[in-house]
């Protein structure tokens, strides 16, 4: 990349910085389980739709069957995960990330003559 920060920053040391490590850990602690969960739930739905036709065709209310309800629940879970993640990222990830970013920007500016 041609547009590195103006003053050299020791990124290797920065990566070991406890604040930074905590930020990364916080992100992964939410993002990894959520990703595994939604992918598992999606593939469960796909496999049921492919191999469990009778179960998915069971009527629940009127003509609305299990398959349609599970399909609509995929929409619900997608919207729910989205809202949950956004509020998490806004409240728990953005503030510490901004703190580190501001400090790094000050450091790189400060060295600049």
């Amino acid at each position: 990349m041609s547009d590195h920060a103006r003053a050299p920053i020791d990124f290797l040391a920065e990566e070991e910085n406890p604040e930074f490590k905590a930020l990364k850990r916080k992100r992964f602690s939410i993002v990894v389980p959520l990703s595994i969960a939604f992918l598992a739930w999606y593939f469960l739905y796909v496999i049921l739709s492919t191999y469990a036709h009778d179960f998915m065709s069971t009527k629940v209310v009127g003509l609305i069957n299990v398959g349609l309800i599970l399909g609509l629940l995929q929409f619900v879970s997608t919207f729910a995960i989205t809202m949950f993640y956004v509020s998490f990222a806004n409240n728990k990830l953005d503030p510490p990330a901004a703190e580190i970013r501001d400090r790094l920007e000050r450091e790189s500016e400060g060295v600049q003559p």
């Binding site: 920065e14 930074f20 930020l23 990364k24 992100r27 990330a97 901004a98 970013r101 790094l104």
Partner: peptide, 10 residues
């Protein structure tokens, strides 16, 4: 890359 990706620095 790691630092920039997670903090938005630079």
């Amino acid at each position: 890359m790691d630092v920039r990706a997670h903090t938005g620095f630079g």
